[in-house]
C-alpha cells in the first residue's frame, strides 16, 4: 500500500470525525451508556496502546521499564505532560549509559 494512501485515509477520517459534529450536529447525546462509553474510550485506547508497547521502546526492556516507572510516578503526582514525557526519556537515557 502506498504511503500517500495511508496518510490520506488517516487525515480524511480524522478530519471528518471533527468536522461532522462541529458543523452539523446541534443536539446533545442522550444515552447515558453511549456517553459513558465515549468518555472512557480515550483512556482505554491510550492504555492499550501504551501497554505492553512501551516496554519495546528504547530497544532495551530495562531502560524502557525505568522510563515507564518514572512516568508513572510523576504522573501520579500530576506533573505537567511535558515534564512526565521528557523525564521518562531522560531516565531511560541515563540508565542506558550504565548498560
Amino acid at each position: 500500500m502506498s504511503l500517500a494512501v495511508y496518510i490520506a485515509v488517516m487525515a480524511g477520517v480524522t478530519y471528518l470525525i471533527r468536522m461532522i459534529p462541529f458543523t452539523f450536529f446541534r443536539k446533545k447525546i442522550k444515552s447515558r451508556f453511549f456517553r459513558s462509553f465515549l468518555y472512557y474510550i480515550p483512556y482505554a485506547v491510550l492504555s492499550a496502546m501504551t501497554i505492553p508497547a512501551i516496554f519495546y521502546t528504547t530497544h532495551n526492556m530495562w531502560t524502557a521499564a525505568a522510563g515507564t516507572a518514572v512516568a508513572l510516578l510523576l504522573a501520579f503526582f500530576e506533573m505537567p505532560l511535558i515534564v512526565v514525557a521528557l523525564a521518562a526519556s531522560g531516565a531511560a537515557f541515563l540508565l542506558s549509559l550504565f548498560m
Binding site: 483512556y43 522510563g67 512516568a71 508513572l72 505537567p80 514525557a85 521518562a88
Partner: peptide
C-alpha cells in the same frame, strides 16, 4: 518513549 510518557500523564 516520549509519546508514551505523555499518554501515561494523561
Amino acid at each position: 518513549i516520549v509519546l508514551y510518557g505523555m499518554f501515561i500523564a494523561i
